[in-house]
Design a protein around this nucleic acid. Structure first.
Length: 660
DNA sequence: CATTTGACTTAGCAGGATCGCT
DNA sequence: AGCGATCCTGCTAAGTCAAATG
């Protein structure tokens, strides 16, 4: 039994383990385990008391709950704790038997229990997200290190020593010199304006023209630094790695309601020059350094509050358990709030993710009705209803985003469905032998171009003509519609329905259909994976998830082709030589050849498509898990380690017959 | 009611880490 | 072992959407 897990799986008890385990069915160990859940400074005593009160509340709720071994053992069944060292049985209020035999774990490895069961009400009512939250606060960006005196800055050909404040901002620019955008007017203008704000009055009067600034020595210095970093010895690199690990251990985790959880982004964003995506009017602006005085800490009252660095203060410490963030600050470019939150592997994120897919599955049940409804609405005598219906058709059919209005001049000019303008589509009565074709061409999120030619139904076409009548190109296509109106309508059609649910629904259902169509159990594993990637790709195309072709694409394709050719040769050789092992050898080479060819196809088809986004955000992971189980594909071939952590709930939950 | 704010998800990319070959 | 190719992770911008605000 050593190093193994004894777990009896009923349909409703699912266990998930870290990599090191220790028998904790022993009571002594159990107490130790409880100790280990605390952060360094500890807080479990207060917690324990609180938890007694909480027990009842936590048992009611609707949702997927997962617990640590300590939670399960100490909280869910205190009786069993006393009575038995061995398998614990307990009977929950409703017809679900939960059963746990034993478990191993150490303090450094999270051992998560996933216990999906039906609760009767909300786990926490009124939007309460947690009862206990303790963390160490953020890690700040390292302070600015002034340049050595031999690295000089020149203005109009003459050496000039900059004040530390001005120098720091100058280095930001110097580091970007190789980037194309430092040549852009808007970038330079914004940068120079913000740089001047950091200058002393003397510098301000001298430095009046960015074109006369020579950052080349700075730039060279940083390049040399990065070379030096690469050339470091193994020991030095190891030392840095160890230090990073130490920081991770200290600041990278928090305790939320008895779970030790990984924090997603515990490091504060360092200062630098803002680079928005696409044609952003604020590119080049100075993103200022965040100090403790800018930071709002969120934690529970009864926790050990994080301490600000010596000699500093937090802006505020609050105890808001209606939100999930641990730390926040206001960023100076857009004035928006940034947060430190938990890792996707955390309970709070996993639960939310699961809910998202459950919502999409609810849409599946009534999507026919909703489609019938919006088709009916194309004929409405009210313009606003027709617009709403056509927009919804696009969102459903093309998986467009909702398209909130944006403040003009504050961000890049991008649109989604509700914010489409007349200039973004062209109507073709007939095109390439098809009738009623709509040609879309606009920039969407992240200024990614959406280009598509879609045949639509006649009624949609006629409506579009109507909406576009007497309008200028820059006018809104749907002038009687916005996302708020649309979502209110959707809310009436189905509780909790919003525009983005259609993206999730259509993505997931597409994956499921494609997997069914493309894969057979007779295929070998590489062929199955090719099919999986193709199904994934169909979704990525639907959602318009693009990427820049990898810089090394052509070359890597060539290399692969070389390998294929070599393999073919090898196969021909083997066929010529009539040896005993002929068949075996041939078979093996053929298999290798096929593998390579599959790889080539896959890569070619994937040139400009990014699969990651849909995999991570739109595809119900249970579909993939079920597919793997059904076809005997190891889950590791589909999800890497991080992804398996994020989708642990699905991996444990979904059986091979799961249907989205 | 329109507008703003706040909290949260979704997004592509750069560069570091790891892999697999010679 | 060294090296290029590939994979993965961290980063942070840019969306969605509901609630707060005026």
């Amino acid at each position: 039994m050593d190093q193994t897990i004894v777990a009896i799986r009923s349909r409703h008890v699912l266990l998930h383990f870290g990599s090191e385990h220790r028998d904790s069915s022993d009571k002594k160990h159990r107490d130790k385990d409880k100790e280990r859940l605390k952060l360094k400074d500890g807080s479990s005593d207060k917690q324990k008391d609180k938890h007694k009160e909480k027990k009842k509340e936590e048992r009611v709720g609707r949702g997927l709950c997962y617990f640590h071994i300590a939670t399960v053992l100490s909280e869910l069944n205190p009786l069993a704790l006393e009575e038995s060292q061995m398998p614990l049985f307990w009977h929950f209020a409703q017809p679900f038997w939960l059963l746990v035999l034993g478990c191993w774990f150490t303090s450094f490895h999270l051992c998560a229990f996933f216990i999906p069961f039906r609760w009767e009400e909300e786990r926490y009512t009124d939007g309460v997200k947690w009862k206990f939250l303790e963390h160490k606060g953020p890690v700040f960006a390292p302070p600015y290190e002034p340049l050595p005196s031999n690295v000089k800055f020149y203005y109009d050909g003459k050496h000039m020593k900059l004040s530390p404040g001005a120098e720091e901002v100058a280095t930001f620019f110097a580091k970007m010199l190789d980037h194309e955008y430092t040549t852009k007017d808007v970038f330079r203008k914004n940068f120079f304006k913000d740089w001047r704000k950091e200058m002393t009055s003397e510098e301000k009067s001298k430095l009046t023209d960015l074109n006369k600034c020579d950052f080349s020595e700075m730039s060279e210095y940083f390049k040399a630094q990065s070379e030096a970093r690469k050339a470091m010895t193994k020991e030095e690199k190891l030392k840095i790695k160890a230090e990073n690990e130490r920081i991770l251990q200290e600041y990278g985790f928090c305790v939320m309601d008895n779970h030790k959880e990984r924090i997603a982004n515990f490091r504060i964003e360092p200062p630098g020059l803002f680079r928005g995506r696409g044609d952003h009017p604020k590119m080049g602006m100075l993103k200022r350094r965040i100090r403790p005085e800018d930071i709002i800490i969120n934690c529970s009252k009864d926790s050990n509050h994080p301490k600000p660095p010596p000699g500093t203060k937090w802006k505020e410490v609050r105890h808001d358990n209606k939100v999930t963030w641990l730390v926040s600050w206001t960023e100076n470019i857009q004035g928006s709030i940034k947060y430190i939150m938990l890792n996707p592997s955390s309970r709070i994120k996993g639960e939310k993710d699961w809910q998202k897919y459950e919502m999409a599955r609810r849409l599946k049940k009534c999507v026919d009705r909703i489609r019938a409804q919006y088709r009916e609405d194309w004929k409405s005598k009210e313009m606003r209803i027709r617009q709403r219906a056509v927009a919804l058709y696009f969102i459903d059919k093309l998986a467009l985003r909702a398209g909130n209005e944006k403040e003009e001049g504050e961000t890049a000019d991008t649109v989604g469905c509700c914010s489409l303008r007349v200039e973004h589509l062209t109507l073709h009565q007939e095109m390439d032998g098809q009738e009623y074709v709509v040609e879309f061409d606009f920039l969407g999120k992240d200024s990614i171009r959406y280009y598509n030619k879609v045949p639509v139904e006649k009624r949609v076409f006629k409506n579009l003509q109507l909406f576009m009548e007497d309008k200028e190109p820059e006018d809104d296509l749907f002038d009687r519609l916005n996302t708020s109106i649309l979502n209110k309508h959707l809310q009436e059609l189905m509780d909790g329905l919003t525009a983005k649910v259609f993206r999730t629904y259509n993505a997931s259902i597409t994956l499921q259909q494609q997997l069914n169509e493309l894969t057979t159990s007779e295929d070998n594993v590489p062929a199955k994976i090719l099919s999986y990637n193709r199904a994934n790709r169909a979704v990525a195309v639907l959602c318009n998830h693009q990427r820049a072709p990898p810089k090394t694409f052509e070359k890597s394709m060539q290399n692969l082709q070389t390998k294929i050719d070599a393999k073919k040769e090898q196969l021909a050789d083997a066929k010529r030589e009539l040896k005993m092992s002929k068949y075996l050898l041939e078979g093996r080479i053929e298999e290798q050849l096929m593998k390579l060819e599959v790889q080539a196809t896959d890569r070619e088809e994937n040139k400009q498509i990014a699969l990651g986004t849909s995999k991570l955000n739109y595809l119900d992971p249970r579909i993939s898990v079920a597919w793997c189980k059904k076809l005997g594909v190891p889950i590791e071939k589909i999800y890497n380690k991080t992804q398996r952590e994020k989708f642990a709930w699905a991996i444990d939950m979904a059986e091979k017959d799961y249907e989205f």
